[in-house]
Design a protein around this nucleic acid. Structure first.
Lengths: 378, 378
DNA sequence: TCCGATTTGTTCGTATGTATG
DNA sequence: GCATACATACGAACAAATCGG
């Protein structure tokens, strides 16, 4: 015999199927259904509960019970309820990446997601391999740090395919300009500006900037470097900007630096803007070799506030990078985007929007005013 | 907030996952569960109901509620040719862990595996949560660094359940002794011996060892510390061994050190064996504050060869840790174990066996002979 | 085969908390 | 602030199936 519960369930389902309850429309309240079917609230709730579980209805406390829109989510349902997020970064175990990843991992695992890690080693073909893998398997969202973001990217079509398959993704640190994706970045131009401004305000006029220009960060920081010079009316040296890319990461800037330092004392730069702390530390090694004191002989500003810059003998003045905060923000946003996608138009109050972190200068001991410097060397 | 219903549900699920409720075995009756959890029958029934819906249990009227056998269906139905490996470590973004993880990630992704990361933050309840997740979802293998490996572990049953479900796992850095698992470790006892031997050979006799004793590494390194003293006939100071655990990681050893240094010059230790580089660096800070020079006034040996010990002003003498090599080895082994399982008896030529890395002393500038010390202070 | 204890199945009632409009 | 609606939880009663004796 059919139980009351079954009857109530069946009847509600009928009303959904025959259109009495339209998608996203509020259905009768529990107390009304109690009257209509002459059953207890418990029975009504149990019936509704099962239909909610099966995806026919959804409830909102204080508002009511609503008919779900089952028009398209059938394929979404069919898949496993495993929640997987992929994180793609250029590197995973170096520099500031562990912190970024930790921030994301911590938030995601707290919210029931699995985190899968991939690193491109800053190589487009690796990026391609990983994107293919992600498209093949089932991921609910992707957090990606673009590989060589300043260069034209051969894998754009894979990202477009993510969109086509309705897999949300967000980019961190930089983004591929063509895609205009949701992103979480530093204000790198401002950062480069702040680095340079700090040195100019300390009296430096012969400043050399080193920038890695195969990613967007470097290009933007360079732009800020130039802007600060313009703003303060300080002319930029010929040879005042050194650019390099990932392949020449170690060698080229060091060589360029050696060249710059080999000229007569008066023509030497008195300050250096580094693309990031990693580069700045590389330079500290060169200075140590050449017995150049920082900051007495030369000021140096890094970028990213890496732990590395705090452990060296000369603590680096640098620009703060949110690191784990960035990871956490990215995690929060991708979860929001997944939720939003799954609730689809039911109510989409706030669209997830890109976040830009503003740079803060962290003053440590690698910079000093030019006056002080002259004082010391007298 | 966790509702009672959630708690009951979670606990029943735990009992399934840790093997308390075996497949097709009758679980406790509703009335029993009511007593155990001190909740109403309603709540128990609701909890069981949901687990039935999700396929964890099935009910038979008059007979009881039974644990479902999920061994076959989930794996076969989705056909998943996805290859997933879980890596569980205490931390993921700190110290030597990024390097270990990179080694594993690099190998696994090259061999077509997805890598999911989990960190326990050295907390048993987190470890439990993660193991339940891994048992619930489909992983082909697990690389795990045990949490508080020297303490009796409340989650042993989950590891046994991994074995029951034929999911290979290996332990790195340490292992739970009861399980006798395949593991990849340092020879920590030897390591502690080598640390101490080095100092004794430099002429030190008043050596203090600091060891974190809630994990196996610490206990074994301490054993090596003692053994070296015996071997060379050097008596161990009273107060010559300081133990601490993760909760008192920052405070306790620093306080103990301060006490040790507050006595008269002649009674002070001349050398310190540190549990790891992290601790050693903490101590360097103390020495800096107290204007104690390393190694002139005091020698210090670390362990693990962390990058941190290379960036400080005094480069640490330390014991090499394979780091990324360990990760790679772990990855290789788990892949082998999965292959072996899948080929099952077809030919099982070599069983995968535990690996122990032998310690090497890395000589840097934080240790010096006692003679030299006297020389300098004269 | 029947009995009685046990166990799950169905249903109703009630109370209190919390979110919404 | 108030009514409405859903969320959580406890208690009670009776029905139906199972199982050992």
């Amino acid at each position: 015999m059919a139980t009351k519960l079954d009857k109530v369930k069946q009847e509600i389902k009928s009303r959904i199927l025959d259109g009495t309850f339209q998608p996203n429309q509020k259905i009768s309240s529990e107390s009304e259904l109690m009257k209509q079917f002459a059953v207890s609230r418990h029975t009504v709730r149990a019936a509704i509960g099962e239909l909610v579980n099966k995806g026919w209805l959804y409830r909102e406390q204080g508002a009511g019970t609503f008919c779900a829109d089952r028009s398209m989510d059938s394929r979404l349902m069919s898949g496993s309820n495993q929640k997987n997020i992929a994180i793609i970064t250029t590197f995973i175990s170096e520099y500031i990446f562990p912190s970024i990843i930790r921030g994301a991992e911590s938030y995601l695992s707290k919210h029931g997601y699995n985190v899968s890690l991939f690193s491109t080693n800053n190589d487009h073909s690796e990026e391609k391999r990983i994107l293919e893998k992600i498209l093949t398997e089932q991921f609910d969202g992707v957090i990606v740090e673009p590989t060589k973001s300043a260069l034209s990217n051969p894998n754009i079509s894979y990202y477009l395919n993510l969109e086509r398959q309705q897999i949300p993704y967000i980019m961190i640190n930089a983004y591929y300009d063509e895609l205009e994706p949701v992103s979480i970045t530093m204000n790198d131009e401002k950062g480069g500006y702040v680095q340079t401004e700090h040195l100019i305000q300390l009296g430096h006029t012969n400043i050399v900037g080193f920038f890695k220009t195969d990613d967007l960060q470097g290009v933007k920081r360079m732009k800020g470097f130039i802007k600060a010079h313009r703003k303060f009316g300080v002319p930029i040296n010929p040879n005042g900007i050194v650019t390099y890319d990932s392949s020449g990461k170690a060698a080229k800037p060091v060589e360029a630096l050696a060249r710059l330092l080999s000229v007569e004392q008066s023509a030497r730069p008195t300050a250096i803007v580094g693309y990031n702390d990693e580069l700045a530390i590389l330079m500290l090694d060169v200075f140590r070799e050449k017995s150049i004191s920082v900051p007495e002989d030369l000021s140096l500003v890094g970028f990213d506030d890496s732990y590395m810059g705090r452990l060296t003998e000369v603590k680096l003045t640098t620009i703060q990078h949110p690191q784990s905060k960035m990871g956490e923000t990215a995690a929060k946003m991708i979860v929001d985007m997944i939720k939003e996608k799954n609730s689809q138009q039911r109510k989409s109050p706030e669209k997830v929007e890109s976040v830009v972190f503003e740079p803060n200068l962290i003053l440590r001991s690698s910079t000093a005013s030019l006056q002080l410097k002259k004082h010391v060397t007298l």
